[in-house]
Simulated scan of single mutants.
Amino acid sequence: MSSTTELRNWLDKNAGRRQEVMIVTCDKTSRTKHISRDQVKDALGNAGWNAGRSYTLDGNLVGHVISHP
């Protein structure tokens, strides 16, 4: 995901999923594509998703494990 709009759209489109998934965002070194952890958590909460663990992946990527109750 490279924007909060893209993230919100994906969350809405996939609200029927019942398994955990990992979404991937860019860290703050990618200024134009960065979504902060707080922005991710806010978008998840607003869409009814639960935030799990976050992981630093290769390069400038951050993985967020999420689930929908």
Rank of each mutant, 00 (worst) to 15 (best):
S3P: 05
L61D: 09
D38K: 10
D42F: 06
K41P: 01
N46P: 01
R18C: 11
H34I: 02
T4Y: 01
D58H: 13
N46D: 13
K13A: 13
R37A: 06
G63I: 02
H34K: 00
Q19A: 12
W49C: 04
H64V: 03
H64N: 15
K13Q: 11
Y55I: 02
N46F: 05
I23F: 02
R17I: 08
T4H: 04
H34W: 13
V65G: 00
A43Q: 03
K13L: 11
M22Q: 14
L44C: 03
R31S: 06
V65T: 03
K28M: 14
V21F: 07
T4A: 07
K13R: 14
D12I: 06
R17A: 12
H64L: 02
T5Y: 10
L11E: 00
C26G: 05
D27W: 07
Y55G: 05
K28E: 15
S2M: 07
L44M: 03
A51R: 08
G16Q: 09
L7N: 08
R31G: 09
L61T: 11
V24L: 12
G63V: 02
L44S: 00
M22A: 08
T29C: 12
T4E: 06
T29I: 10
N9A: 07
G45T: 04
G59N: 09
P69Q: 14
R37G: 04
K28W: 06
S67C: 15
V40E: 02
S54M: 08
R18F: 08
Y55D: 05
G16Y: 07
T5N: 10
M22V: 13
R8C: 09
T56F: 07
S67I: 08
S54Q: 02
N14I: 06
W10S: 07
M22K: 15
R53P: 04
G16F: 15
G48I: 10
K41D: 01
I35F: 01
D42G: 03
G45A: 03
G52M: 00
Q19L: 11
T25N: 09
G16I: 12
V24R: 07
H68F: 12
L57A: 04
T4C: 11
G63E: 04
T29G: 08
T56L: 10
D58P: 07
K13H: 14
N60R: 13
I23K: 01
R53C: 03
M1G: 03
V24K: 07
A51F: 09
R18T: 10
N9I: 10
V21M: 02
A15F: 06
N14W: 00
R18N: 09
R37I: 10
A43T: 01
S3H: 05
L7C: 12
T25H: 05
S67V: 08
R53H: 11
N60I: 09
L61Y: 10
G48W: 02
A51N: 01
R18Q: 15
C26K: 14
T56V: 12
V62G: 06
R17M: 13
D27N: 15
Q19D: 14
L44Q: 06
L44Y: 11
I35H: 00
R53A: 01
T29V: 13
S3Q: 10
S2F: 04
Q39N: 09
K41F: 07
W49L: 00
N9M: 07
A51T: 00
L44A: 01
R8M: 13
R31M: 11
R8F: 01
T32R: 15
Q19V: 09
H34Q: 04
G45K: 15
R8K: 14
K28S: 13
D12G: 14
K28H: 14
D27A: 05
N50V: 07
